[in-house]
């Protein structure tokens, strides 16, 4: 299918991009990897008048640890995360997520930041980055601001970004020692959106008790959800089977699934429980 006609601009700097967004406001749409946006445009479900391609802005594809954060530049692709030795060695949750985002070809173009900005409740990165307590750096006409992920994700396909703001970085606090994580996803086939998925990151103290816990739920609500009660049930506890089961049950309670072709609300809620069990067991291992 053929998108409606639009005007195309490719700014060479963040400042130029922000100026364009300010100029065109809601008529403009930012494109990075385009793996969600272009299909929507082909179906004319999205018909931006102006497409602002940030793909030609230099220096936005960095992936490095700095100042206590893993800093993911706005143009870092899913595949970069998937193949990065740094991610594979130190970020088990992000590594597990990167392997199951869409399919391997889509992962070569789609970006982490773009996925987050799309704010699809079935987006894998949003759940993973919620569990990892990430922050989003947005550049606007008045400079940059940092938004916590829970505040960033506002509603289905809606974020806290102003129309003249651009995400330039996603940052994840560098986890302490004894951090484990996992991403468990049920999909009908590779490339499908999740029926349900659960992201888990836990940090243990020297005694083996849970110091910090993050649990993000994917595709089981109008928005990516944080399983707060389940996280609280873990903190201060050893990650034994009883604690894990209790947390899994609480995670299931936190889900707000609706029935669709992927499954009934009842099934998805129970899958949140099963996937949380599995993710926590893997994270604790």
């Amino acid at each position: 299918m053929i998108p409606a006609a639009f005007e195309y601009v490719a700014p060479r700097s963040v400042a130029e991009a922000v100026a364009l967004l300010r100029q065109h406001s809601y008529d403009a749409k930012v494109i990075a990897g385009g793996q969600s946006l272009i299909p929507m445009m082909r179906f004319r479900m999205a018909q931006p008048r102006v497409l602002v391609d940030i793909g030609r802005i230099p220096g936005l594809d960095y992936l490095r640890e700095e100042d206590g954060f893993l800093r993911i530049g706005a143009l870092v692709r899913h595949a970069t995360m998937e193949h990065s030795p740094l991610i594979q060695e130190r970020y088990p949750l992000l590594a597990a997520t990167a392997r199951v985002v869409a399919d391997p070809l889509v992962r070569n173009l789609g970006t982490v930041a773009g996925s987050l900005v799309h704010a699809d409740p079935a987006g894998d990165w949003a759940a993973a980055l919620m569990a990892a307590r990430a922050q989003v750096v947005a550049a606007g006409p008045d400079g940059e601001r940092v938004i916590g992920i829970d505040d960033f994700l506002v509603d289905t396909f809606t974020t806290a970004l102003e129309p003249d703001e651009l995400v330039v970085e996603v940052r994840v606090p560098i986890p302490g020692p004894r951090t484990g994580g996992d991403y468990q996803k049920i999909e009908r086939k590779v490339g499908d959106f999740a029926t349900a998925a659960v992201a888990v990151q836990v940090t243990l103290d020297e005694a083996g008790r849970c110091q910090q816990a993050g649990i993000g739920l994917c595709a089981v609500g109008p928005i990516t959800l944080r399983a707060t009660a389940a996280e609280e049930a873990l903190v201060g506890q050893p990650l034994d089977e009883a604690t894990i089961r209790k947390a899994a049950a609480l995670a299931a309670e936190a889900a707000q699934p609706t029935s669709d072709l992927r499954g009934s609300a009842e099934y998805k809620r129970d899958m949140v429980r099963v996937l949380t069990l599995r993710a926590l067991r893997n994270a604790a291992a």
Binding site: G34, L51, L105
Partner: peptide, 19 residues
Amino acid sequence: CTVILNGKPIKSCTMFAVQ
């Protein structure tokens, strides 16, 4: 529609030629 773009396989139906 898979082609190799700058060394990586991608779906050429999900990219504009201008990109």
